[in-house]
Design a protein around this nucleic acid. Sequence first.
DNA 1: CTGTTAGCGCATTCAC
DNA 2: GTGAATGCGCTAACAG
Lengths: 324, 324
Amino acid sequence: MVREMNYRPNLVARSLVTRKTNVLGVVVPDLSRSFFTEVTKGIDHVASASGYNILLCNTGEDPDREDDQVRTLVSKQVDGLILASAHPQGSTGLRDEIANCGIPFVLVDRFFPDLPFVGGDDVQIGRLATEHLIQQGYRNIAHLRGPNVSTAIGRLEGYLKALNDHGLRPRKGCIVEASYHGEASGFKAMRKLLRLSPGADAVFAASDPIAIGALEAIIEAGLRVPEDMGLVGVGNHRYGEYLRVPLTTVDQNRLEIGKQAASLLLELIEGKSDRSPRLTLLKPKLIPRESSLRLQNARKSQRPQTSKPPTRGACRSSALGRSL
Amino acid sequence: MVREMNYRPNLVARSLVTRKTNVLGVVVPDLSRSFFTEVTKGIDHVASASGYNILLCNTGEDPDREDDQVRTLVSKQVDGLILASAHPQGSTGLRDEIANCGIPFVLVDRFFPDLPFVGGDDVQIGRLATEHLIQQGYRNIAHLRGPNVSTAIGRLEGYLKALNDHGLRPRKGCIVEASYHGEASGFKAMRKLLRLSPGADAVFAASDPIAIGALEAIIEAGLRVPEDMGLVGVGNHRYGEYLRVPLTTVDQNRLEIGKQAASLLLELIEGKSDRSPRLTLLKPKLIPRESSLRLQNARKSQRPQTSKPPTRGACRSSALGRSL
DNA sequence: CTGTTAGCGCATTCAC
DNA sequence: GTGAATGCGCTAACAG
C-alpha cells in the first residue's frame, strides 16, 4: 500500500533528526587506477549490504584538494570516511584534517602511524617479489620504486631486506623512481635504469602499470623476458596475464582491502570499537607467470583458472632477434 | 575567522531548506569495467568543478537492484541522476522508475528512446570497425556480439550494414554472443565461433575485453593475428596496446561521455533546459593497431605517442608453429 | 543593513 | 495503543 501510494520519504529530513545519513565518504587519489576502483567496489559491496551509500571523491593525488573533499564530506554529515591519502608520508596535514573532527574513519592503502588502517603488507610484498627473483637465479636485481607514499617505502624496504638476507647488495643506480600511475612513467624509468645500471638481470617494479611500461622498454632494448631480464610487478592487474609477456605479480587482494575497510568502518560507526586490531595488513600472494620464470620447474603454475593449454612459450617481438 | 573557529556548517540542514543537496547520483552496472570508471571520472570532473559530489551505486547488471538504488537516491534528494541502465532494451521498468519521479536525469551508454542520452554512436562504431576490416582485405568477417543492451544491438546493426554496403553477407553461425564483462566470455565465444564458422578470417568483437579473450582463443587455435585472423575491439582499452598482439579498437571517448552527461545534467538541474539536443552521440574513432593491419601501407599508424621504434612484428606464442 | 522568526520533513516525545 | 507537539540546524522572509 505504501508502495502504491508511492510515498517517498525525505531522507535528508530524516537524517537531520537522526543524525545519521547512511552515507560513507570514500576519497581516492585516482579513479582510473584499477587498484582504487577495485577497492571502491569492495567498499560498496559491504556498505550497500548494510544499507549505506557511497559518496565518492577523486583527489588527483592533490593533498589540498583532498582536504577540501574531506571538509565537504564532513559537512555533508557522512557517517564515516575511507581514505587513501595523497598527503606525503610524515606530513601532519592528514591528522589535522581528519583525526580531530570526531567522525569515524579508516585509512586504506597508504599507511599513517596510529590511525586505523587496512592495506597490504608492503614490506612483505617487496620481500616476496625480490625473493622470488632470487630464487629464480637472478642476482643483480634492480627496483623501480614508486613515489613517496607508504606503499612505495615499504616495498623498497622489503626489497632491500630480501637482498640483504641473501647476501646481495643493490648496485649503484639500480633504484629508480617512477610514478605509480602511468605505464609511460615505468617506460621512462626502465630506460633510465638500463643506462644507469646496465648489468641488471631482473627488475622488481613497485606496481603493475610500472612493470608494463618497463616491459616495453626492455623489449625495445632488445632483451628477452624472462631470459635476459626477469620482471615482477605488484597488484595482480587484471590484464597482467594477457600482456606481451604474462606478468609475474604480487597480489595484495584489493577487493578484500575494500571489504575489510568498510567492515571496520561500520564497526567503528556502530560503536563496537572493541575490535582490537585497528591495523589490518593483508597477506600478499605471489602470482608467478612467465615474466620471471626462467627455471623450468616453475612452468607449471601458469594460468590455472582457464582451460587453455599450459604450454606457452615467451611472447616476443620479432624486432628482438638482432641484438642477441 | 570562520576557519579558525572551525565552524562546520551542517549541509543536510541546509539542504532541507534549500531543497538542494549538491549531490549527483551515478548508477553503473559494474565499477570494475574501465569503461564505467572512466565515465564516472569524467562525471566527477565536471561535477566537482561545479561544487557537486557524486553518490555512486553499483548495480551488478541487476535491474531490480538498479530500481532500488534509484529509489534510494531519489529519497536522498540527489539533485540529478546519471544512469547506465541494466534494464533490457524495450523494457518499461526504467521509464516507470525514473521518468515520472520529477528529478532531472541523463542516461549514458545504454540508450532508451525519448530519454536524455549521452553515449557513443554504436551503429557508427560497428560500421567503422567492420569497414576497416573490409578495407584490410578481410572478407569473411564474424562478430562477437554483446548482450541485449542498446550498445550491442547498435554495433551489430552497424556491422550488418557495413557488410551489406560492400556486398558481403554474414555466414551462418558467424555471430556469437558474449557477455561484455569478461575476457573469459570472449574466449569461450571465440572458441565456439571457430567451430561454427571455421572459414572466418576476421572478427569484430563488441568490446575490448571480449576481443582480449578472443585473441587468446585465436592464438590457442594456432592462428596468427593479423595474418590468419584480423581482430577489432571497441573501447580503446588502456592496455590494448600492451597485449600479445596490440589491439585495433574503436574509441568511443569515454571520459567525454561522462563530462557531457554531467554538463547536460547540470543544465537540466539549473533549468536551462533550452539546450535542444538532448540526444548526444559522440563520434567514434578508429585506433588501428597490429591486430587488424595485414596490409603494409597501414603499418605506420602504430603507437604514435611513445618513442618506441615502429618496427614490431606480431607477437606470437611459440606453441603456434605446429599447426600451420 | 542587522536581528529575529518561521518552517523545511521528519523522528521523537509527550499527552491522551 | 493513537495523536499532537517539539526540535534537528539551517535559510529565507520579515521586521526593526
